[in-house]
């Protein structure tokens, strides 16, 4: 076990190596992304403030991520309730299909959506990115919500009903508060996925790029690379923050309903 632990620590270092490098270069005054480091600077962060195109992309991304997260979580609630409470004909097939984007290469989702949209004579734009992101975020939302709903003892809802509440007020007074941590967690995870997603956005974004698409175009200009490092640092810190909050809520929900299974997802 001791040698395994050493291996595990080395493995974690391997996993985190790129992320640890980010802030080193983001605060390094050299315009070349290489060792040795020169001196400390916050110049690249201030440079971000001047990139007005990036601000547009950021706003566009936020708009898309919030909408996709809400849509995916809503669709996730329906599906998670259906599978955790009821059994229905074709359940396995239907759920398997809904979860398919989890393994399907994103480029397949991207080109197939693109072709349908163009064929139907529409133009791509933020709406088509939202459509694609909702599709790929829904399986993640379902995975989180399903465990939240499964952890909910069905006799709690029966008890509320037995004590005189209607199905609607039972949902409001018992179900919703108990699965709320799961819902928040699903929203945050979907938001994070949408904010980071590149391929679908690259194909479907139209004239207004999202932040990752804009970032991808920045990579072609060596002059902008330190700024990319600064932007990356901010994005990574925000992602970790959001994911930590999501994990906090998910675990609080698990604790409340009395079964903390540990793992993530």
């Amino acid at each position: 076990m001791k040698s395994l632990k050493t291996y595990a620590v080395l493995y974690l270092i391997f996993l985190y190596a790129p992320i640890f490098l980010l802030p080193l270069f983001a605060f390094n005054s050299s315009t070349i992304i290489a060792f040795p480091l020169e001196s400390f600077t916050t110049e690249w962060f201030t440079q971000l403030l001047t990139l007005s195109e990036m601000h547009g992309a950021l706003l566009n991304s936020l708009k898309i991520a919030v909408t996709s997260a809400v849509l995916a979580t809503t669709l996730g609630i329906f599906a998670a309730m259906a599978v955790s409470r009821y059994s229905f004909p074709g359940q396995k097939g239907i759920m398997g299909f809904i979860m398919l984007p989890l393994v399907l290469p994103e480029i397949i989702v991207a080109v197939s959506l693109l072709i349908v949209i163009l064929r139907m004579g529409f133009d791509t734009g933020a709406w088509s990115v939202i459509a694609g992101h909702t599709l790929i975020c829904t399986p993640f939302a379902i995975a989180i919500l399903q465990s939240a709903f499964a952890a909910l003892d069905p006799s709690l809802e029966e008890a509320a009903y037995d004590l005189g509440e209607t199905p609607a007020s039972t949902f409001r007074l018992v179900t919703l508060p108990l699965v709320m941590p799961g819902i928040i967690s699903a929203l945050l995870i979907s938001f994070t996925i949408s904010m980071d997603e590149f391929i679908i956005a690259f194909f479907l974004t139209g004239a207004e790029p999202t932040l990752p698409v804009y970032l991808f175009s920045m990579l072609r200009f060596p002059k902008l690379l330190p700024a990319v490092m600064a932007l990356g640092t901010i994005l990574v810190v925000l992602s970790i923050l959001l994911i930590t909050i999501a994990e906090f809520f998910r675990r609080r929900g698990a604790k409340r309903t009395g079964n903390d299974t540990g793992g993530f997802l």
Partner: peptide
């Protein structure tokens, strides 16, 4: 079974329209 089908249908319909249809189209 009916309630289950009814509940899963919005999500299933979404996957049908935005995944099945495009995959068939391609």
């Amino acid at each position: 079974q009916g309630i289950g089908m009814l509940l899963v249908s919005p999500t299933a319909l979404y996957a049908l329209l935005l995944l099945a249809v495009p995959l068939i189209a391609i």
